[in-house]
Every structure is written in structure tokens, then in C-alpha cells.
Design a protein around this nucleic acid. Structure first.
Lengths: 237, 237
DNA sequence: TAGTGGTCTAGACCACCGA
DNA sequence: CGGTGGTCTAGACCACTAG
């Protein structure tokens, strides 16, 4: 744990515990830097984290303020600063997978375009149903270049692709572009997600890329509308 | 325009124009800092921007890489790093507003909780239909503390609340917590958004707060499912 | 081991804000 | 004007990765 993270954690605790009055600015950076025995830049970086988390708000010439707004929900959330698999999202709950499609094929033009490969490069085509607490939760359709992500098999598909990439292949994920939309359910949704014909679907289209910048995954996650909320925090800078 | 932004812009142009080969790292920070005649920290900060935009990806001990993944769409997008009103989102298109509800009332417990006020503090309750190119686009239900955002009237409602807050009241917006979900359409949606009974809705629930951290807006934006996509870029750090 | 990005310092000047 | 956060420097050491 580096210094600015440690300071950031301490400050987060203080804020949550009401150590600072919420109707006035917290102490200025110079004062805090002295208290924490660090440079002002390090103090600033510690506060940057809390600003990005949506806990603090700053104004040059004015001060740093605590944002008086709650958060969280009881449905499962995705924080937009995290990019992990579903297996890591639902905490201690067991995520089971049912493999509906697992094949290797040549990509369509659209898929090839998103993955930045040509149409002669084989891709995995995977459709998995993800089940939490014995209830269908999300259906994921995934395309991945087979040469980039080797070793996908039935066992991997039944646990976590992300863990396979991270731990077995030792590739580091860099991030993702995402698009979130509402759409109507199709026959596959109705069959596997157990939703009615007029139930909407929350679809997340995603291009995931490695730290090297190479796209490794193009996927569509179709969520039951009553079990998924996508959460983000946006802070002006 | 400060130095690191100027450098960032120059680097963004270079990357988009293919100045650097995409299959190898760009020059290291020390070399680039020399070229741009700046300190390494400033160079790093310039690259930080591009990392956050999803254009670059870094790995300690390895290098900085160009992310090979396209973006954008033809539907209207929201980038998660921006917090502006719809009026500023659709470019040069004219946004018209139809005011459906405009009243002042005492907040429900839920609204009071989100706005961090007590239930004795009056709030505006506004429902507006937003129309682009003569087609219904989104219906926004908004609650705002009346004492915090004074001067809301019919004229403001027919143009842009955000501009009123920014320019007339000279308050600076700090950011927002957002939740995005799919839901079924209700009678109001069907009546005003011109959607069918089984058309889904993309709902964005939002608590907006000022730079002082004070929540000023609790809103629900209900979008036609075929005219809105929510876009985000996520980068691991 | 050499080269990369990550962190940190001490100090400086600037831009913006409120009084 | 004084106080705030924003930027920038020059240099240092560290952590990680590749070969």
C-alpha cells in the first residue's frame, strides 16, 4: 500500500465517520499535508481518489467539500471503475454457468471490426447462462480471438473466463468500452432467462482490451431487467 | 490551455493519425518529456488523460500502448466523464421541451433522503418531455430544492435548466451518481414518448450535486429504447 | 541487469475565489 | 488582498518486466 492510498483510506474513514462537518470545507491541502507528513502533491493525490469516488468536490480558491449524497442499492451494481467478471461481482454468492453455445468460427465483419482482426482469424463464439442462487441472472454472448486467448474449454467456461485470462494466461486486462441499452427480449432470453415476452432486457455491449491495448473480447450481456442496475459516479474535473 | 492539456491534445492527434505504430509501445515518458520540453511528471499527466479516455494503456516496466479498439455510434451517447444537460448533448439539433408537470411540493421521504433535505423543505417537481427533430426523445422527472435553485419558471423549463444553474445562478456542477436500468413503459411513457405498450424504457436515475457537494437534483430520465445508448469507457489503474 | 512506469519530495508560480 | 486548489519543475528512489 503506497502512501497516497493509505492517506486516502484514512480520509475516507474520517469522512464516513463524520469527523469533518459536512457544511464547511475540509482543511486545506497544505494543512493536511503537514498533518500526514507528506508533500502537498501526495496529499492532493490522496484527495483525487476521493473526488473520483464521488465523496469530495473541489473548487480552486474556495476549498474542498464533502458531497452530501448517498449511494448504493440492494440490486447488484457495477461500478464503472472496475472491470471484472461476474464471478467477482456478486460477492460470496456462487455463480454457476450453463454453456449454451461453444464453438469456433470465422468472425462476421462486425465482430472482426470490433476485435481489430481480419475475417480469417478464428474466434471463439460462446453463449453462457449465468445463474446466481439458482436463478437465471444474465446471458452472455462472447467473441474472443482464439489465438489470443487459448485454452478455453468446458471447465473454464463453467468457472470464470476472467480468472483464466488473469491467472492461467497471466494477461492483464486494461479496460473496456461499454454501451448500455434497453431492448426487447428474444426467444433465447425467454427460454433461458425465464422472462416473459414483454419483459425488457438491459444489454451491455462491451469491447474489452488488454493492458497492451489489444482487444480480446467482444460481448453482449443480457440482463434480467429486475435484477441488474448499472451504477456510475461522474465527477467534473 | 495548460501545458499538459496541450501536450495531451498533440499526442491524441498523433495517435489518431497513425504517427505511432500500433503494434509496439510509444516512446517512453522520459524521451517524450525531452521532446516536449517538459518534466516527466507533466508528460505523465498528459498521457494520463489519454489513458482515461481509453486511447492508451500502460504497464510498469513494459511500456505504453495504443488501444486498438474503435468506439462511437450513430445514436446519441453519454460519455460518463461529462455531466451536462441534454441541450448540450445532441449537438446542433434543436431541443424543444413540453412541460407536463410543474409544481412545488413537500418531498416524499425518498426524495428528501436523496436530496439530503428534510421533509419540510419545499422542492420543485417537474416533468418535461424533451423533443428532438419533432420526435419525442426523453421524459425527465426532476426534483430540486426550491431554496437552492430559485427562479425556475416556464421560460427556463422550455430551454435548459442546466444553463439556468450554470449561467444565471452561477452555480458550478460537481458531478452525479447515476443508476441505469431497463424497465417497462407506463401510461405516461406511452402517451408522451409515443411508445407501444411492450416497448421497454431505458431509465437513468441521477443525483446531481454542486461543486460544494450539495445535492441539487434528483431525477429520472426515461428514454425511448431505440434512441438512446449510454456509453462509458473504463480503464484499470 | 537495463529500461519502463509509479511514487514522492520541496519548492515555485499561477488562477481563481471571497471578503 | 489572503487563501485556496491547479500546475510545473528537477531530481530521486522504487516496483515491475523483459531478455
Amino acid at each position: 500500500m503506497v502512501k497516497y492510498q493509505a492517506i486516502s483510506n484514512e480520509m475516507r474513514e474520517r469522512i464516513k465517520k463524520g469527523y469533518y462537518p459536512i457544511d464547511q470545507p475540509i482543511p486545506d491541502e497544505h494543512t493536511l499535508a503537514e498533518e500526514f507528513n507528506c508533500s502537498r502533491l501526495t496529499m492532493k493525490r490522496a484527495l483525487d481518489i476521493l473526488v473520483m469516488e464521488g465523496l469530495l468536490s473541489r473548487k480552486r480558491g474556495h476549498g474542498t467539500f464533502i458531497i452530501q449524497s448517498p449511494a448504493d442499492d440492494n440490486t447488484v451494481n457495477v461500478i464503472s471503475d472496475v472491470n471484472i467478471g461476474l464471478s467477482n461481482l456478486v460477492g460470496s454468492e456462487v455463480v454457476k454457468s450453463k454453456v449454451i453455445v461453444f464453438e469456433i468460427q470465422f468472425p462476421s465483419e462486425k465482430v472482426a471490426n470490433q476485435l481489430m482482426i481480419d475475417m480469417d482469424t478464428p474466434v471463439y463464439h460462446i453463449i453462457r447462462l449465468r445463474v446466481v442462487k439458482d436463478e437465471p441472472y444474465v446471458m452472455e454472448e462472447t467473441y474472443m480471438p482464439a489465438n489470443l486467448i487459448p485454452g478455453i474449454n468446458d471447465q473454464v467456461l463453467h468457472s470464470s473466463i476472467y480468472n483464466h485470462i488473469n491467472k492461467t494466461l497471466e494477461l492483464k486486462m486494461g479496460g473496456a468500452h461499454r454501451k448500455i441499452r434497453a431492448c426487447k427480449s428474444n426467444e433465447l432470453d425467454q427460454k433461458y432467462l425465464d422472462c416473459k415476452i414483454d419483459d425488457p432486457i438491459l444489454e451491455v455491449e462491451q469491447v474489452g482490451f488488454l493492458l497492451t491495448g489489444v482487444p480480446f473480447e467482444y460481448s453482449f450481456s443480457r440482463h434480467r431487467y429486475d435484477k441488474f442496475v448499472f451504477s456510475t459516479v461522474t465527477v467534473n474535473r
